[in-house]
């Protein structure tokens, strides 16, 4: 009896797996995270995780991970990450820290000294 049940379940499970697999081959590229709890579930769509690494880091664009070799810099009370010539300002957006490309801060250590004022 148990054996029979086992076979039936196994057949059904195989069928289920086949159907799920056939469905998943056309899965969308959106990343959906199931996070809600109990009986007030809220589906949330989340943006991609890839950092925009390139020469054209537009001021105002946001990434979730920094390119390699960045250094943490404080300018006054403001936290920055400097990655080569690109400056990022960290912020909490959603549940995690993200980084927004900003103009180099006025007092940036790496910036060239301002020209002397005209006499």
């Amino acid at each position: 009896m148990n054996k029979h049940h086992g076979r039936s379940a196994s057949r059904l499970a195989t069928l289920l797996v086949a159907i799920v697999l056939s469905l998943s081959t056309t899965a969308a590229h959106a990343i959906i995270v199931r996070t809600a709890v109990a009986y007030r579930p809220v589906a949330r769509a989340v943006v991609g995780t890839a950092a925009v690494v390139g020469t054209a880091a537009l001021v105002g664009s946001m990434v979730r991970t920094l390119p390699p070799s960045c250094s943490s810099v404080m300018v006054g009370a403001v936290a920055y990450q400097q990655c080569g010539n690109t400056w990022y300002q960290p912020q909490y957006a959603g549940s995690q820290v993200t980084y927004v490309v900003v103009n180099p801060p006025a007092a940036a250590p790496a910036a060239p000294p301002p020209p002397p004022p005209p006499q």
Binding site: V33, A36, V37, Y39, R40, R44, A93, G94, S95
Partner: peptide
């Protein structure tokens, strides 16, 4: 949830007992 889009794990533990539990959607 609404203003910050911040995901609080186990958050619905705090909804039980309010009129927002949406049990009528079951």
């Amino acid at each position: 949830e609404k203003r910050y889009g911040f995901d609080l794990p186990l958050a619905d533990l705090f909804y039980w007992g309010t009129d927002q539990d949406s049990s009528n959607q079951i």
